[in-house]
């Protein structure tokens, strides 16, 4: 039997909004440790890695490891039926081919449940090598979303260049070029409003705007985002989900033609 009760169904809804652009369906792997998901987009350019820790749930019970394949458009329909302050309880029997979502309003004045069919997905997991990143940049997630949105108007790719002075995002296209430079901030009082750069070696890599824009759908989950860069290695864009876990995106770089 699997049962997980999350205080805020809105948090799960945000997670769903952050992955459904990239994935049509995905397997949620449930174990004692929590709920995990790892899946590549259809083009095998990006990978989504979600980890929701069991102790982030109000109630969590997983008697046997369970993989639940779900269509994310269907799952979105289910979560569209939840109120913003509802709790959600996810339930499945050990060998079930369905999963149940129960939404409860704060004062129990409304309780609804939706049963959804599960899918058998043949998803392979990828081994992600440990990497010593050359540059790790922390910045406000809203600022990152803004930069990606602004630069995407001009070109299809963004070059992220990092030195110890700061980080530069650049693009070029038919109408011209655009550059945004962020300096490291000195005010560490408010960490989630700061730009913090941990640089071992300067690095400059090119990435697709389209994918970066999809990743920024996770902005409502966290005030801060972490970008980890290293030559010839996929970019990691990481959003911490407060008290619950994290959502990481990996993106293969573009290389010179």
């Amino acid at each position: 039997m699997f049962e997980a009760r999350l205080a805020s169904s809105a948090t799960f809804k945000k997670v769903l909004d952050a992955i459904k652009d990239l994935l049509n369906e995905a397997s949620f792997d449930c174990s004692d440790a929590g709920i995990q998901l790892q899946a590549m987009d259809n083009s095998h350019v990006s990978l989504v890695s979600l980890n929701l820790k069991s102790d982030g749930f109000e109630k969590y019970r997983c008697d046997r490891n369970l993989t639940m394949g779900m269509n994310l458009a269907s799952l979105s329909k289910v979560f569209r039926c939840s109120g913003s302050d509802d709790t959600v309880t996810i339930k499945a029997q050990d060998d079930a081919d369905t999963v149940t979502f129960m939404f409860e309003a704060k004062k129990q004045e409304k309780i609804s449940d939706y049963e959804m069919k599960l899918m058998n997905l043949d998803q392979e997991h990828l081994g992600i090598p440990e990497t010593e990143f050359s540059c790790i940049i922390k910045l406000p997630s809203g600022e990152f979303a803004r930069i990606v949105r602004d630069l995407s108007q001009f070109g299809e790719s963004i070059v992220i260049s990092c030195t110890k002075e700061g980080v530069k995002f650049s693009t070029q296209g038919d109408i011209g070029t655009g550059n945004v430079k962020l300096a490291q901030t000195n005010n560490f009082d408010k960490e989630d409003q700061s730009v913090i750069i941990d640089m071992q070696e300067p690095v400059s890599l090119t990435f697709s705007c389209e994918y970066l824009n999809s990743f920024t759908k996770a902005t409502p989950l966290s005030n801060q985002v972490t970008l980890s860069l290293c030559d010839n290695v996929p970019l990691v864009v990481e959003y911490q989900i407060p008290d619950l876990g994290h959502l990481k995106y990996y993106l293969a770089p573009k290389i010179e033609e």
Partner: peptide, 14 residues
């Protein structure tokens, strides 16, 4: 502006 690489060049199936 550059050729897109595949993630499969970097990560191998487990």
């Amino acid at each position: 502006s550059g050729n897109q690489t595949s993630l499969m060049n970097f990560f191998k199936p487990k």
